[in-house]
Every structure is written in structure tokens, then in C-alpha cells.
């Protein structure tokens, strides 16, 4: 049995509009959509552009729309999406570089905007540490799932707010904002709140939840964003200098 693979082709410097090209790929059990695309690239049409790396849902490179839903091509088996016909196109809401390859530059800029790292005020301690920054297991559990983000962009591709608001950080960045704001070791809440509590901040999310539905790693950005809203509305001043986690001897 062959699988009919429909691929959206588009070279912005040449084509005026995207077009769909069809390829026939020999089906085999366990074949992923990425396998099918790479078969085409290897044996049928070398000009097909696709980005991939790890082939095991760890790097987040091969995000694309598969039969209308943002998914990782390496993590989606052809048999699970119908088997006979598969349609692939680049992720929505990202500029198209060529064919299935999208430009993630703006996405990573949004990620950086929310200061995605633990911020500390005790610079002397950071320069010459005398102990570890410890956290309790229950505190880790509160943020653990949000640390699994691989920045594939599927959540941002599915987000209806991102579709119209270019200044909105998007579900990926906001989930990371939650992850670091809730980290008991962090003292960067005040800086982060400037982005979150703005006209294009966390309250532009209207809880469509598709970010969580498409996330391949179980990050659940929709949950993080709603909890972040509560945190912003709670009127508690963000943690400031000296109010983060205590350090203790290892």
C-alpha cells in the first residue's frame, strides 16, 4: 500500500502563492510523517525543504501542520493520521522560509522577553557560591511539567490570539514565564511582570486551550497561563531582592 503525501510547496522569492504537490510513498508499519517526507526528499524530489534533527521528539525542529493540526513530524505515525493520505503544510503564524520550513526568530525573541531563567540579586553569591540554591520536591513539582518545553512552536502555531496580535508573547513564552515566576529560587518577578501585565500580556489569552491540546510534551501552557493570570491578579508584589529561596550548605 502506498501513502499519498500532499505537501505544501512555497518558495517566497519565486512563487506568488503556495501550491500543493502530491507524492506516493511506500507505506511501512511504524513509518512517521517525517520518514515519509524524507523518503520523498531522498528518492523523489531533492528540492523539498524540511527542517529536522533528532527524530525523537526532543529537539522540536520538525513542527508542521499534519492534516490540519500542528504536530511534530517525527512523533506522528502515518498510520495514526489515516495512513492512506497525509497532508503537510508549514506551521501557521510563523513566516515561511521555504516549503515546510518556518522562521522561528520572532518566536525565540518572545521567549527571551519573559526572562526565561532564574534571576538572582545576590551577585556576590553567584560569583563565588558558598552553597547550592535548593528547592523542595513539592516546589519542583509545581513547575516541573513546564520545564519540558522543547520550543517546537506548535502551541504558538495553534494559538488564535497569536494569529492577530503580533505583540502577544504567545503560549510558549507565557508558560515559561509561569515556570520561572513560580520557581522559589527566582527573584525576577518584577521585570517579568512588565511584559505579563501589559496591554498585550497574559490577559490577551482567552483560554482556547489548543496550545495544550497540541503540545507533544505535556507542558499544558493553557493551565500555566490561567494560573499566571491568577498570580498577576492576586496583587501580591512579585518577589523582590532577598525574598527568593534560601541558600543552604550542600
Amino acid at each position: 500500500m502506498d501513502t499519498l503525501l500532499r505537501v505544501q510547496r512555497f518558495e517566497p522569492t519565486v512563487d506568488r502563492a503556495p501550491k500543493t504537490q502530491e507524492y506516493s510513498v511506500p507505506f511501512r508499519d511504524g513509518m512517521t510523517v517525517l520518514d515519509a517526507i524524507l523518503y520523498v526528499k531522498d528518492y523523489v524530489d531533492h528540492s523539498l525543504a524540511v527542517r529536522f534533527s533528532c527524530r525523537q521528539a526532543s529537539c522540536g525542529s520538525c513542527g508542521m501542520k499534519i492534516n490540519g493540526v500542528p504536530r511534530l513530524a517525527c512523533y506522528t505515525q502515518v498510520a495514526d493520521v489515516g495512513g492512506r493520505e497525509v497532508t503537510v503544510s508549514p506551521m501557521d503564524n510563523f513566516p515561511i522560509v521555504r516549503d515546510l520550513v518556518t522562521d522561528l526568530t520572532g518566536f525565540f525573541e518572545k521567549h527571551k522577553e519573559v526572562i526565561p531563567h532564574v534571576v538572582r540579586r545576590d551577585s556576590a553569591e553567584m560569583e563565588s557560591p558558598t552553597s547550592d540554591y535548593l528547592m523542595k520536591p513539592e516546589d519542583l513539582e509545581r513547575i516541573l511539567q513546564f520545564t519540558y518545553c522543547i520550543k517546537c512552536g506548535l502551541c504558538t502555531s495553534s494559538c488564535p490570539t497569536v494569529a492577530t496580535d503580533s505583540l502577544y508573547p504567545g503560549p510558549q513564552a507565557l508558560a515559561q514565564a509561569y515556570r520561572y515566576t513560580m520557581d522559589v529560587r527566582d527573584e525576577g518577578g518584577a521585570e517579568r511582570f512588565k511584559v505579563l501585565d501589559s496591554a498585550h500580556g497574559v490577559f490577551r489569552c482567552h483560554y482556547a486551550g489548543s496550545c495544550s491540546a497540541v503540545c507533544p510534551k505535556g507542558v499544558d501552557p493553557a493551565l500555566g497561563i490561567q494560573l499566571l493570570k491568577r498570580h498577576v491578579m492576586s496583587a501580591k508584589p512579585p518577589r523582590g531582592p532577598g525574598e527568593g529561596a534560601r541558600t543552604s550548605k550542600p
Binding site: P95, I96, A163
Partner: peptide, 8 residues
């Protein structure tokens, strides 16, 4: 050059 793919 890239092409916008915003859904609007």
C-alpha cells in the same frame, strides 16, 4: 525573504 503565514 520570508512570507507571512499569520492566520488573522
Amino acid at each position: 525573504e520570508t512570507a507571512s503565514n499569520k492566520r488573522g
